[in-house]
Amino acid sequence: MAKLIEATYGDALFELAVEESRVDSLYDEAGAVIEAFNDNPEFGRLLNHPEVEKGEKEGLINNIFSQFVSGDMTGLLITMVSKDRQKKIVDTLEYFRKRVLEYKKIGIAYVSTAKPLTDEQKKAVAGKLLETTGYVDFQMHYSVDESLIGGMVIRIGDRVVDSSIKHKIDELSRSLMKIQL
Rank of each mutant, 00 (worst) to 15 (best):
M1N: 14
M1S: 13
M1A: 13
K3F: 07
I5P: 06
E6V: 00
Y9H: 08
Y9R: 09
A12P: 04
L13D: 01
V18C: 10
E20Q: 13
S21R: 12
S21L: 12
D24Y: 00
S25P: 01
L26S: 09
A30I: 06
G31D: 02
A32P: 00
A32T: 08
I34M: 08
I34T: 08
A36V: 13
A36Q: 06
A36M: 13
N38S: 11
N38T: 10
N38H: 10
N40G: 03
E42S: 05
F43P: 01
F43M: 12
F43H: 01
G44E: 10
G44C: 04
G44Q: 05
R45K: 07
L46D: 00
N48Y: 00
H49A: 10
P50C: 08
P50F: 02
V52I: 14
V52S: 03
V52P: 04
K54P: 04
G55K: 10
E56P: 02
K57P: 01
G59N: 12
G59T: 05
N63L: 10
I64C: 09
S66E: 02
F68E: 14
V69F: 03
S70N: 05
S70C: 09
G71I: 04
D72Y: 00
T74F: 01
G75Q: 05
G75P: 05
G75E: 09
L77W: 03
L77D: 08
L77M: 12
V81E: 01
V81Y: 03
S82D: 15
K83R: 10
D84S: 12
K88G: 05
K88L: 04
D91T: 12
D91L: 07
D91N: 13
T92R: 14
L93C: 07
L93T: 06
F96G: 02
K98Y: 00
K98V: 11
V100G: 11
E102T: 15
Y103I: 14
Y103H: 15
Y103W: 07
I106R: 06
I108M: 14
I108F: 00
V111W: 02
V111R: 01
T113S: 14
K115Y: 14
P116A: 15
P116M: 14
L117Q: 03
L117T: 07
E120M: 06
K123S: 15
V125F: 11
A126F: 01
G127M: 08
G127R: 10
L130M: 10
L130F: 00
T132A: 08
T133N: 07
G134F: 03
M140W: 04
Y142C: 11
Y142V: 07
S143R: 10
D145S: 12
S147G: 14
S147R: 14
G150W: 08
M152V: 06
M152E: 09
V153D: 05
R155I: 05
D158S: 15
R159N: 14
V161Q: 13
D162W: 09
S163P: 03
S163L: 06
S163G: 11
K166E: 02
I169V: 11
D170P: 06
L172M: 13
L172D: 09
R174V: 15
S175I: 04
S175Y: 07
M177L: 11
I179E: 12
I179H: 12
Q180V: 09
L181P: 15
